[in-house]
Each structure stands twice: as structure tokens, then as C-alpha cells.
Write a protein that binds this DNA or RNA. Structure first.
Lengths: 346, 346
DNA sequence: TTGTAAGCGTTATCAG
DNA sequence: CTGATAACGCTTACAA
């Protein structure tokens, strides 16, 4: 590989001149510039990244920490992951993927060795070790999520307490008093995956305040989920529920929709459906479902922007928290029971 | 950040001693080792990656080039991607993600600047620019796929010509003479995504040789796909077909299975189903489907192993091709029409 | 067993 | 406008 010296020799100038031609940090005669550029092209010269970094040039790499578990919700996962990669690229940063078992160790290694300039933490749990140890990373860190312990990093997330309240209020306002909750993957509950739990608690609290009754259905482990059983139980157990709140992934929810369709149960005329903390966009659904979605594009954008600002501005972002207000997407699957005539809400 | 000099000072030794303690390249007294290790722990010292690299130490990073299109089959995509990341990690390499528009430019940049030690190309098309320009990359490159032009890189893929023959033979041997082909996403055909096209051509050729009739159904664009129409057309158009060969993703195929179930069409008694070049494992299907699957684990493993060997052994792998023989996964969805009594094949 | 010093490929400072 | 050179943090001959 040709180095800067080779270029200098070929162009008949000094190495510093070559460097300055590339960096535009001092004025160079047109003639010299031309000769140098020719030599660069001729030799296919690309500056060595390590040498540049040793001289203080940023390498523009951010680490993306994403645990790979067997039970992840791929669609949602991907939406966040791909969008974060896209935002990074857009800000002219490369992405170094950290997926191993020893997440904390890996992050410490890549930050302390100056391999990366910053860190994004994805798929955050309530007790997230990566976030808890963020103070030991040598570079600014932002978590997409809201872990309990987060002194060392910034946090960007949807305000899931608000999502819970909004969900309860939304249904209450439309006359629903008995709802059934189709829980997310139980693994996520066991792991206390941050948002899943926060939404759940907030929604249940709010429902109780309002005097709504919430029946929980939890067999949403994908491998074991049985839509037939769910629909059966839902309508056999007193048959009081007028609405379903779903945390389940698209495929599971769609099975429920299908099963109801088969049984002649209409949405929203017979039962309303509201999906919360999900990402149904682009999924193949039997019918559109009103949703309080997660917002991968927005969160990824905020996370990367904040991180890049910190990297380039040198300001610390440790401890910062930005909780975004949820936005409900009306898709006509919730019935307004208080409306005259009993027509759908949309 | 503490450097090697700080450690040396704290331990009361020279910098070379610290370096040798870390690298074990010469014997150090127990006492000195202890003092140095203490200082390292005390100061949280981690060697600077750039400085090491400048001295010829490998940085153990491979670039993973994966285009992000709107229409990718996420499940399959992920299986490859996650597995490749896992294999890399397992071989002690970090992964630098390249997802941008200017894939060739990015690969040239990260290889020539010595940022990475090798490159893996994913989601290869028949005319793949990345593979065609592989000779211009400064590091060994392996493509997971089989592009037309591949002089500059190694190729690892399933032998899709064999898959096509196997599919036709498998059904022919079991007495099927009229089959319907549920094509993959049309985008993949338009783009001439390598394997999709190779399978298709090979299967059609073989079917013709055998005198089988193949009816093609191509509305498998996820957004527009209509299982009802498909099943209707399949059984109205003469109703001759005894089997479906599917290239479609799990969700699309499952819709078809559901629609047939609703209509009382039994699998495999009334119609057989064979899925080819897909990755149904872990997908939620109405019933198991016999499959000639892609093999993400195997291909990722082979690709990373080959690449790492080349990096560490210094041997060129340009032009190498490794086509893996397909393995059929029997899951009882294909009926053996030649068997006495007409029972299912499994 | 340990220390000294050269040098990796850049950038920036200081002279011209 | 351009050139020589120190310095970045580390590894590794070469000396002791």
C-alpha cells in the first residue's frame, strides 16, 4: 500500500504538502495541487486510519451494542437497529456491532482503546448492566430505553408511563369498561424488559383509577400461543370484554384477528382492538389496528444526534433523560361505544 | 486516559517491560509482572488500538456489507446477518457494519485505510457491483452468494442449481406431474437476486426435462399478495396441480396454508407443499412444511472461517467458489402419490 | 531479567 | 506558498 511518502515523492513535494492538499488547511498553488492529486489517484492512496487517529483525527465510529437473544421480536428489533445504522451513516459515522455475551467488557474494550468515539445501547432492560456500568466507558454513551440505573449515560425513550395512561384513557373515553390485555412475550416480562413492564404497570394503575376491569392473558410466548384458546377464553369468561389491549407482536395479534374473523366476531363492531408499544407498520395484518406505536425512527434519530453532538462538541451527556410523548395512530379498530348509533370511531 | 508510559512510571519499570508483560513475548520476573499488572489495574490501562495497529498488530475487525432495501425478507436476512456476526465474534473479530448507498466506495475506504482486515459481502445479486469490484479492495473478501463476476473474492453459497433439480425430482419421484410455483418477491426477480433466479431456471429446466407442467403464480409482493386469489386461481384453472412449490417467505406461505385450511383443502392429502430456498425454521406456521432451506449457519460459518484463514494465513482466496449441496428437510407436507393406499410421505 | 531507542504513517509547528 | 521535523502510543530489535 502506498503511503503519504510515496505520494510526496511521486509528486515531487514534501509530505506536509500532501497532507495539506488533503486537509485544505493552508493554501496550495493550483499546480502543486494538481500534481499531488494526480499522484494520489495514480497510487490509489488512502490515508491510514490508525496513523490519522494517532494524530487526533476522529475515526468516526460508533459502537452499537445489541444483545442477541433467542426470543427477540425481530420486526421491532430490526426497525430500531436498521434505523440506528442509517442515522449513523447519515451523520458520517461507521457502526461497530457489539453482539457478544460479554457486552460490558466489549464496550469497555472498544471505548478505552479508542476504537470507537461513542456508544449506543439498544434493547435495554430495567436492570441493564450495560447502562449501569456506563460510567466506566471512556466515550459518551446513549441508551435507547430507560433503565433504572443510568447515571453514566443519556437515555432516549418513549414515555411508557404515558402510553399506559393514554391507552386506558383512550378506551375509557370511548365507553369501554371491561378490557382484556394480551401480554407481550413472557420472556420480556421475566427479564423485566424496561418498556414492557413500565407500560403494564402504568396501564393497570390507570385502569384501576378509572374503575376499569382488566383481564390479563399471558400465553403469548410465540411457540406456545394459541389464538383459538385466547379467543375462546376471552368470550367464554363472562364475555364481558369490549376491547383488547395488545402488547403482542404483529404475527400473534394477526392470528387473533384471523381467529375472530373465522368466528364472525367483527372488529371494531363486536370488539375493539388497541395495540400498544408495538410496531405494526409494514406488517401484513388482516385489518389495520389502532396503535400507540414505538417510534424507532424518532428515537434512533434523537439518540444518534445527541451522541454525535456530544462527540463533536465534547459535552458530557451522562444522566440526561429524554422521554418522548407517545402518539396514537388511529386506524379504526376501536369502537366509540358512547357515540349515537354505535358506529365505529373512524 | 492512561498510556503505557503512565503504567511504566507507576510500576517503576520501562515501557518495554509493560509491553512485554502484556504480550508474553519474553520472560518477566514474577515480582515485576505483579507490579505491572497492579499498575494496569490501578490505572485502568487499555492499549490504544491505533498505536498497536501502526506497529503491525491486527485489529481484528471485519466489514460486513449488507445493503438495506425496503423489500428485504427480514427473517432470512436476519438469520444470515446475526449468524455472521456471531461467527465473527466467535473467531474474535469485531464487525463493522456497512449499510450505506455507496457500498463499493465504503468498502474501498475501510479496506484501504486498514480499518478492517477483511470483508464479508451479504445479499448478493447476480450482477453484484460489490463482488465485481472486489479486486480493488485491499483486504480479502468473501461473498455469501454466487454472483456472475467474482474474480476478486471468494464465494460461498448453496448450490441452487441442485436445489432446483432436487425440488423437481423430489416431486416427480412422488408422482406429481402438475405443480404450481408460488414465486418469491418479484423485486428479487427484477433485481435478479442470485439464488432466486438460479433456482427458478434450474427447476423449470428440470421440470421440462421430466415432462412436468409448472404453472407460475407471481403476485407474491407482500403488500399486494392475496392468498384467496391464489388459492382460487390454483383450483379453478383446471385444478390440475397436485403440489405447490413455494419460494415465498413464511408469512405469505402461511396465509396460503390458512386459506386452504378454511376451504377444507388438506395438506398433503389434497395438495402437497414444498418450500425451496426459504428459512422457515422458527417461523410460526399453521403446519410444518417440507423444505429445501437456505443454510445461514453453515454458510456464515464457512464464510467467516475462510476469511479468517485468509487474514491470518495471508493466503489469497480470490476466485474460490464453494457451493454447498442442499439438504431437504422432510416435514410431511408432500404426499407420495405412488405409494399404495395414498398415505402421506411421512 | 530489564532498559534504550528506532520507527510505524500521519498532522501540526516552526522555519523559510 | 512550501519544506523539515517533532510528536502521537506503541512494539520490538538491540544492548546491557
Amino acid at each position: 500500500m502506498a503511503g503519504i511518502k510515496d505520494v510526496a515523492r511521486a509528486a515531487g513535494v514534501s509530505v506536509s504538502t500532501v497532507s495539506y492538499v488533503l486537509s485544505n488547511k493552508r493554501s496550495i498553488s493550483a499546480e502543486t495541487t494538481r500534481r499531488v492529486m494526480d499522484a494520489i489517484r495514480e497510487l490509489d492512496y488512502t490515508p491510514d486510519a490508525s496513523a490519522q487517529k494517532m494524530r487526533g483525527v476522529r475515526n468516526s465510529i460508533i459502537a452499537l451494542s445489541m444483545p442477541i437473544r433467542g426470543d427477540i421480536n425481530l420486526a421491532k428489533y430490526n426497525a430500531y437497529f436498521l434505523r440506528t445504522a442509517w442515522e449513523a451513516k447519515n451523520a458520517d459515522y461507521d457502526v461497530l456491532l457489539l453482539t457478544g455475551e460479554d457486552m460490558v467488557g466489549d464496550i469497555q474494550r472498544v471505548t478505552r482503546s479508542n476504537l470507537v468515539d461513542g456508544v449506543v445501547l439498544m434493547d435495554i432492560e430495567e436492570d441493564d448492566e450495560r447502562a449501569a456500568k456506563a460510567a466506566t466507558y471512556a466515550k459518551p454513551t446513549v441508551a435507547v430505553g430507560y433503565p433504572l440505573s443510568h447515571d453514566g449515560c443519556a437515555c432516549i425513550d418513549i414515555d411508557f408511563v404515558q402510553v399506559g395512561c393514554q391507552a386506558a384513557d383512550y378506551l375509557y373515553d370511548r365507553g369501554h369498561r371491561n378490557v382484556i390485555l394480551l401480554r407481550d412475550n413472557e420472556h420480556d416480562y421475566e427479564r423485566r424488559s424496561g418498556y414492557v413492564v413500565m407500560f403494564h404497570e402504568s396501564m393497570m394503575d390507570r385502569a384501576e383509577e378509572l374503575g376499569m376491569s382488566v383481564l390479563e392473558f399471558s400465553k403469548t410466548d410465540l411457540a406456545r400461543f394459541d389464538a383459538v384458546e385466547f379467543v375462546h377464553e376471552m368470550f367464554s369468561d363472562g364475555g364481558m370484554a369490549t376491547a383488547i389491549i395488545s402488547q403482542a407482536p404483529a404475527s400473534v395479534l394477526d392470528h387473533v384477528l384471523k381467529e375472530m374473523q373465522v368466528r364472525g366476531i367483527r372488529v371494531p363492531e363486536d370488539v375493539s382492538v388497541l395495540s400498544c408499544g408495538t410496531f405494526l407498520e409494514g406488517e401484513f395484518m388482516t385489518r389495520p389496528v389502532t396503535e400507540i406505536p414505538v417510534m424507532p425512527e424518532l428515537l434512533a434519530h434523537k439518540a444518534v444526534s445527541l451522541l454525535v453532538d456530544s462527540i463533536e462538541g465534547g459535552k458530557s451527556i451522562a444522566g440526561m433523560v429524554d422521554l418522548v410523548s407517545p402518539v396514537i395512530q388511529e386506524r379504526g379498530s376501536v369502537m366509540d361505544l358512547t357515540a349515537e348509533g354505535g358506529r365505529g370511531s373512524r
